[in-house]
Design a protein around this nucleic acid. Structure first.
Lengths: 151, 151
DNA sequence: GTGAACAGTTCAACTCTTGAACTAGTTATT
DNA sequence: AATAACTAGTTCAAGAGTTGAACTGTTCAC
């Protein structure tokens, strides 16, 4: 394939991801009202998935500085959704866990996001969605390689 | 398909888009250095695509309040990348256009974004990328329907 | 035991965002 | 023509997320 063709493909990808991200982002934000921001929801989601995790882990997953995570976690902690537990053996490490309240609000928020997004996924046939996800996951997987170097 | 299956699909979609967006976002940001933020780049890109546009148009496309656009445009204007031209007939309307400098910096930034993203797209076969884009564009298209109501 | 490395936090400065209040211009109504 | 209603855009205060530098504690290696 020549250069021009790749530019066309890039342009199409750019346009599609722009639209999907802005639209979904806006709908999700609206659904979560003043309870959680999108970043707060994603933070709870990540911690929930792994049971507990550290600031450093979150910073790597979110591709941001650790201080950005500290800020988000502090807000979630003030709202009573997250615990900060120091490791007994290595006292530098702080484990982040959901509180009871945090579990509840995460459940609620995840349901809301599902309600917003799933109707749009349901317009696809079972075969289409499988094909799409396989390719999207492939993209996610390669974009994740060589992840150690930056930040 | 039953509910559980849709939840699985939703989870897979959530995970893939999270990874791709965070990774690409981080790489693009790094490439654009202190010249442009991602939102500024997307704003220049949108204006470039349509030749000129208004604050209201941008706000709808980006799914944000008009005042958010005013802020971004003001910064781009201070940097000398954007003109504000009042419509002669309807003097409420302000047309936003790229300056010479704006055209140049957009060209540069678009090239940078292309350099970051295209290597990851190139791992797909021609058939795969076409299938993926068709489905992604379908998702973009349906997510864009019913766009008039909100905000 | 000292110095290097690491985990996490604090801080100032910036960008983006909202929502309310506002200016200025246009359209509709009577 | 005068008033009211609407529209385009801006300003402002407040809040969220981000960076990068400087900092506190803690652990590890020599």
């Amino acid at each position: 394939m020549d250069v021009g063709k790749w530019q066309t493909i890039f342009g199409r990808y750019e346009a599609a991801s722009f639209t999907v991200n802005k639209r979904f982002g806006s709908l999700v934000k609206e659904k979560l009202q003043d309870v959680l921001t999108i970043d707060q929801q994603m933070t709870l989601s990540y911690i929930k998935r792994f049971g507990s995790c550290t600031t450093t882990e979150l910073a790597e997953a979110f591709c941001v500085n650790k201080s950005a995570i500290t800020a988000i976690v502090t807000r979630l902690n003030e709202k009573g959704y997250i615990h900060r537990d120091r490791d007994e053996k290595d006292r530098r490490i702080v484990y982040l866990r959901l509180t009871e309240e945090g579990e509840k609000v995460f459940q609620w928020a995840d349901e809301k996001v599902f309600e917003v997004v799933s109707p749009y996924l349901k317009i696809f046939s079972e075969e289409e969605i499988e094909t799409f996800l396989k390719l999207y996951e492939k993209l996610a997987s390669v974009s994740n390689e060589g992840a150690g170097e930056e930040k």
